[in-house]
Design a binder for these strands. Sequence first.
DNA 1: CTGTTAGCGCTTTCAT
DNA 2: ATGAAAGCGCTAACAG
Lengths: 348, 348
Amino acid sequence: MPNRVTMADVAHEAGVSTMTVSRVVNNKGEVSPATRQRVLDVIERLRYRPSGIARGLATRRTRTLGLVIPDVANPFFSDVTRGAEHVAYAQGYNVFLCNTEEDPQRELAVLRSLEEKRVDGVVLCSSRLDDDELRQVVSRHSAVVLVNRRLESMDEQNGVGAVLVDDLSGGRMVTRHLLDTGHRAVGLLAGPPTSHSGRRRAEGYRAALADAGVQYDPAWVIACPADVDGGRRAAAGLLAAHPDLTALFCYNDLVAVGALHACAEMGRRVPDDLAVVGFDDILLAALVTPPLTTCRVPRYELGGQAMKLLLNQIDGCPESSDQRTEANRAPRVEIVLRPEFIVRASAP
Amino acid sequence: MPNRVTMADVAHEAGVSTMTVSRVVNNKGEVSPATRQRVLDVIERLRYRPSGIARGLATRRTRTLGLVIPDVANPFFSDVTRGAEHVAYAQGYNVFLCNTEEDPQRELAVLRSLEEKRVDGVVLCSSRLDDDELRQVVSRHSAVVLVNRRLESMDEQNGVGAVLVDDLSGGRMVTRHLLDTGHRAVGLLAGPPTSHSGRRRAEGYRAALADAGVQYDPAWVIACPADVDGGRRAAAGLLAAHPDLTALFCYNDLVAVGALHACAEMGRRVPDDLAVVGFDDILLAALVTPPLTTCRVPRYELGGQAMKLLLNQIDGCPESSDQRTEANRAPRVEIVLRPEFIVRASAP
DNA sequence: CTGTTAGCGCTTTCAT
DNA sequence: ATGAAAGCGCTAACAG
């Protein structure tokens, strides 16, 4: 039994015009304390709830945002989601959660549905779209913040924000640690080729090798799905082909756990026979045996910062979102979060 | 740069009335193939996107739903969320994700915001509200489905759906297994007192003890926060007070992992010195050492079923949601999902 | 301080 | 098969 009480009902009952009710509800404009109280009482009595829909139509602001991510069930993204939702909620916004399931078509589809819902802005995580598609998307939304993805060369640099993790440094730190602890044959389970983070981490890996003057061998690198089973299979394959590897740098903690399993199956002891390093530091990382050396990514903050950036963009451009001038255009901001290297038993 | 193209623009450009455009967009009413195509072309060319807001105001249906959960970052709920979102999306609905953070005040607040957003329905998970508050909430929404929570004695049984896990059976299975494998001193880390599931699992525990003719000892039961640290502390405390315990039934897998840690710290070997059982079978459960014996809860399905129930309720009552008759009233449905007992090394 | 007049962009009658 | 008129519930812009 939905709410059927309208502002007109309240106005009528309180003996005022709807405008006065509107002023009371929105705390704007001057209203005499007496009338205000009277209106408030009626609202309370009738249990009136303003319609966000009607309000949205009138104001062209819905106080509604979209969060597009590959998969909430992935612990990485559920933390991002949590951070984003928290910030949005604190500012009185509701957020539509949209899973893309890593499918670009679906990503496009949810983005379109968000467009129809007239969201005030979108946080788009780990987009699998190509630059052109992405530019299209950005042009059709009032405000967009990218997470884990950068978009270069915007013709007009209309405020696309971005929050990134310094994956290159992360990959470098991990690899350097391995090198520093004496390893020379370091394999890389690189994750999905479509992953931008994966590519950056791999860059870090190569950079560290170069730093140390160690020859980079492509045969030591193998792509894999970003889950436990993907890691297990990839590790098994790579170790079978290259038994001489003494360490494995894994795309993320899930993959690393898979690698741990592969080692168990192949009778290779971690860390004695093989050092294993993960990435992200999800809850799981510290709880497996041996606990994983990894690189912590501030996921909650990633979501929170992205949302803050988005909200800034939104109220940075009060109305005229189509008529952007140098003055009201949101600045093009990029925030880079540093991952933190954490040593545990899997690679002491 | 949001979408400024309106239906009127399309109509004008195509030389028809907005009604014709509306008919084309919604595939309803007869429109000649020729005009239809012409309109479609204009829509395509202008990249017209119908406004869900305007449509919602006119139709009183927003194709928008609310999902209220304690915390997406909790692996249990992120799976529920995933299932729910998947089903909703398949039917063309968008869902607002709302975290309550276990705080009843916040729960009430998000529920109110959902009301203002005029969602067509709400899936409410593990509500911490008391029955009266809950009844209030239900009465103010067109459709509500409860997850992990039952609401008895609705004065009018207006279609509140519920999807439940048979926690009692689950608790009983777990305890019986422990009993069957020779344990007589079985402790219970019961989780938060506010958790309905926790209470039901504890009932199952007592029932199994009674079944086996084993005396129930309240001193063996201790409440705890539903996370790793909560489990660690509670286990440490309980084991210190009752070193004679030979098995621990934990509220959920997180708590069980905490118990594992406590054991490690106290030098008690699992499963030799102490058997440990968890609940839920989150990803983590199979990956810790030793892998946890647990009771799998079909979380994804829990969310999916809840959403299906909700969607049924919604289009079961086409318009007149205030004027409910015996005929159009949604049936009061309860779905009970059975957990599945899984034996692993922590309690063979 | 309060009310009036117009819409916001769509869909619902009811005509034609 | 198509259109005209009215209205969904609210707010912007002016009055007064």
